[in-house]
Design a protein around this nucleic acid. Structure first.
Lengths: 211, 211
DNA sequence: ACACGAAATCCAATATCATGGATTTCGCGA
DNA sequence: TCGCGAAATCCATGATATTGGATTTCGTGT
């Protein structure tokens, strides 16, 4: 289960025959972000360069150079700095996503009715456009119908909970039956499906997690 | 809204007065992982060192050294390699989390009844222990009651959907009312609350996302 | 077995990272 | 304003990253 844009985008990334030239500005942007990030984190914690240096095993001079964007650290140095802040390298070097206020989606908003056909009705419960790392859906399956999905990007997971009816989850050739109140988590980076095994409509809430 | 273990753990990371010495084995582990990762990805894509080198702007020699764990690349070089594979640095250098099979949580499993008191009932819908980046809950609020939460780790977000009743969301001093079928997303790295504004019990499903 | 082209590794040179000690700057109290 | 200690930056040096061309290895076809 995923929205088309995510699926298409990831297929493009993985299956191309030829590698595509990288955008040289990205590495520059990362350096620019890192210098501010290290300085901000250090100041938020109230640490001097000396303290951070002692903890991370990176010289004060190097830390100073990084904060002034005067040096490009190796991965090992970056890892030690990240660790001293209790972060992973990804958490240290990647741009934080901004979130502003409360974003409301009304139950009758037609823009969030992603799909409505003889099999099922899917409503998106998280904000559009769906280009984030976590997606939230309401899925209603008609009796005897199912929703089948191909494998998605590596490490994609799903959480599902059943609010009404009975369903069967299949993932990695494994199958489980769920009733009202039951939940499940499973891999979605392999073919998987959700099937209505009850007599009436099944109502579920589905969380798709891309890593 | 968060489970105590996550809250405590993140507070420890951010608010300590003194930085703690890093574990030197982490940087070694990253190098060890990176060399296999670059080789695997390159071979999966069917690219030669020359092709990857042309795309990434990193020399064949350097790529070869990285794959043999004979060099420790700078962040800029790492960024260019990651980008050529269509990944972020984090995605390239961090160990993928393994997910095995379908993990089922039954609706009547007492281990997942996180809280049940005069205010509300909370059930965890994602697997225990709750040390992952995304958590899923069912939250039932009694009439006139609310659930108040302190700010959590930076960049924490929440998605919520209302299956029954009326609620009011407050985050960043902002307030929104939701009815059945409505959803919302908002920051949880600031004080926030969920309040039942209807006459009967409110039933919601809540996704907590830690970045 | 040999020939050939592609792919990977070696090699030497240059550039840059990373360091520890020296020097300068900063912030605060008297 | 001055003095002082802490914090940040400068400096020279050694180590390592990074490169492009040369050489070796590999895989395949005849």
């Amino acid at each position: 289960m995923a929205v088309a844009s995510r699926h298409v985008a990831t297929s493009t990334k993985v299956t191309m025959n030829q590698p595509q030239p990288v955008n040289p500005e990205v590495a520059d942007a990362i350096s620019q972000l890192l210098c501010h990030r290290v300085r901000d984190l250090r100041q938020q914690n109230g640490w001097s360069l000396d303290q951070l240096g002692t903890a991370s095993g990176v010289s004060r001079s190097m830390l100073s150079q990084i904060e002034r964007n005067e040096a490009n650290p190796t991965l090992a140095v970056t890892a030690r700095i990240a660790q001293a802040f209790g972060l992973t390298i990804g958490e240290l070097v990647e741009a934080p996503r901004k979130s502003t206020g409360i974003h409301v989606i009304r139950g009758d908003d037609p823009a969030h009715l992603y799909r409505s056909d003889e099999d099922c009705e899917i409503r998106t419960l998280s904000p559009l456009p769906l280009e984030k790392d976590v997606e939230f859906y309401q899925l209603k399956l008609k009796p005897g119908r199912s929703l089948k999905s191909d494998a998605h990007f590596q490490k994609t997971r799903e959480f599902i909970t059943v609010e009404q009816g009975k369903i069967r989850i299949t993932s990695s050739g494994e199958t489980r039956d769920l009733a009202k109140g039951d939940s499940a988590s499973y891999r979605a980076d392999v073919p998987h499906s959700i099937e209505n095994r009850g007599k009436g409509e099944a109502l579920t809430f589905l969380v798709v997690i891309y890593e």
